[in-house]
């Protein structure tokens, strides 16, 4: 369960790289590749293992000139889906 206060990081097994055919960023894990949209890339690249989801959303809101509450809701939805697949880790 991801909450605004959760501190989330990509699982160590996950790598992000550019898809040389599409130019988009993909998330790679064992037997899996997920194409990410621009906002998902921004969230995942901002995860640093120390800031909460709310803090990450606030900093993205400032740099992307978008409402923090909407970014936070989208980030929680994304990170919850990834957590179900054990692709991100939530700090205890």
């Amino acid at each position: 369960m991801i909450a605004p206060e959760s501190v989330v990081a990509l699982a160590p097994k996950v790598r992000l790289r550019e898809d040389r055919i599409t130019g988009k960023t993909v998330l790679l894990a064992p037997e899996r590749g997920l194409e990410l949209n621009a906002s998902a890339v921004a969230v995942l690249r901002a995860l640093d293992g120390t800031r909460s989801v709310r803090e990450v959303a606030a900093s993205l809101a400032a740099t992307h000139n978008a409402p923090a509450d909407r970014i936070e809701a989208e980030a929680i939805a994304l990170l919850s889906a990834l957590a179900d697949r054990a692709l991100v880790r939530v700090a205890p």
Partner: peptide, 8 residues
Amino acid sequence: AEALGVMQ
């Protein structure tokens, strides 16, 4: 393979 688009 990578040049063709392979990532895994």
